[in-house]
Amino acid sequence: MNVNNTDERDLTPEERGAFAALSREQEPGRLLEERTVAELSERGLLTGSRSRFGVPGAIWSVAAVAALAMMIASFAVGHWLGSRDTANLMLAMQDRSSEQAVASVEQTGAAYRQALIELTALRQSTAPQEQLRGREVALSTIYAAADEMLRIAPDDPLAVRIMQAFNSVNSSLPPGESPETQSVVWF
């Protein structure tokens, strides 16, 4: 940009070029679209509830929350059953915040199951590609939860077996074919 121009009123050709070279478009954050749609839906300005994957967005939201809750619940149960440490178990049971967490896990776990039931029901009305997408998300959720559990408790037997099952399936896929669970980034 020619910054030595003394004429304050008009742009020089060089300055025009500099402005013209500036980008006219830029992508905002990926979540903004979902945020905006949610806001518009809440205000009643959008009524169609089908997300870009053809499955109601609320189901995915519930599934996400529930998956997180299941991860916590699985870790808690695995820890209790695996260690069979009665003293720790008693201490944990006396801890009111833990009780509340477990109760929350039970509730959200039930919601997660309900979300999957609804997802199953949608099989009749959705395209095969959308069904596949739903399966991918569901499996990704389980995979991600098990993977996270292993980070928290590497010896947790349940998480280890889940991961072994996933790895077993992945290793049996033909070369070049990606496992379904790797095509969706959920967390």
Partner: peptide, 16 residues
């Protein structure tokens, strides 16, 4: 109809 699909198309077309 408050068509969400139509909105998303509009959104993606003009938001950048």
């Amino acid at each position: 109809t408050g068509d969400q699909r139509a909105f998303r198309t509009l959104y993606r077309r003009h938001t950048p």
